[in-house]
Amino acid sequence: MPDLPAHMRPERSFQGLILALQRYWADYGCVILQPYDMEVGAGTFHPATTLRALGPKPWNAAYVQPSRRPKDGRYGENPNRLQHYYQFQVILKPNPPDLQDLYLKSLYAIGIDPTLHDIRFVEDDWESPTLGAWGLGWECWCDGMEVSQFTYFQQVAGFECAPVSGELTYGLERLAMYVQGVERVYDLNFNGREGAQKVTYGDVFLQAEQEYSRHNFEYSDTVMLFEQFKMAEAACKNYLAAGWSTKGNARHHLMALPAYDQCIKASHVFNLLDARGVISVTERQSYILRVRELAKACGEAWLATEAGGGG
């Protein structure tokens, strides 16, 4: 590893680990994006993955995405379950032939040396029913711990990926706990400093975990949320309908991104409702289907935009 100051080293600092990954993928040629400014369940929902995976144009990007899984909240009492956590997401379209090697080198860049550790690719096929997406790949194990998801997207929003993108998702807290040798997520050293200057993950997020767990399980306003779901769904459909235009013989879409925001919104609202346990098993399926319909329509619109290759 280059001569980093101690507080920037991935094995001492959570932010150092994030910066090391950004640096690595920037060196590869990725655009380093910032997190999407909406609540999402995973880095995949970022339009830089979902939408950019569609269409023929090459696209290489990497970014951190705060991810919210309301159901996974544990009031800050579980050592490794969080309702809000960070994913580091890399999307390469088309996937380069040496993607596995690139991935392994990125692990090396954050201090995981394959001559000391047992790194394995274990079958794990990925499917997102809400996004109408699936791909084949693995969970990547380091000494028996899952540290990343590695997927070759085959279909997104119900459309075949042509070409296929390679998607890497690093679970940042887990990786950091591993390289820092910490058993409890809240004990992670966030800023890499020691003594009075040290800031832990708990200092930053413990209170938030407690408050949001309370909110997600007990107090979220379900009447409002049901209403919001309907509104987001309707808005998504409206924007999609309004965005279609015809130039010559070709159909174009002028508002795929704003429409997709409403799809993301609906998906998150559904997750909040699900966490409150107000959606029955049978209803659950129909909500997932409704979000998928939105995602598919957004994908179709995206393919008729400039960046989607249809401009």
Binding site: P94, Q154, A162
Partner: peptide, 13 residues
């Protein structure tokens, strides 16, 4: 049982 496409070649049917 399940197969996939990959890389540049996957751009074409």
């Amino acid at each position: 049982p399940k197969s996939m496409r990959w890389g540049e070649a996957s751009a074409k049917p």
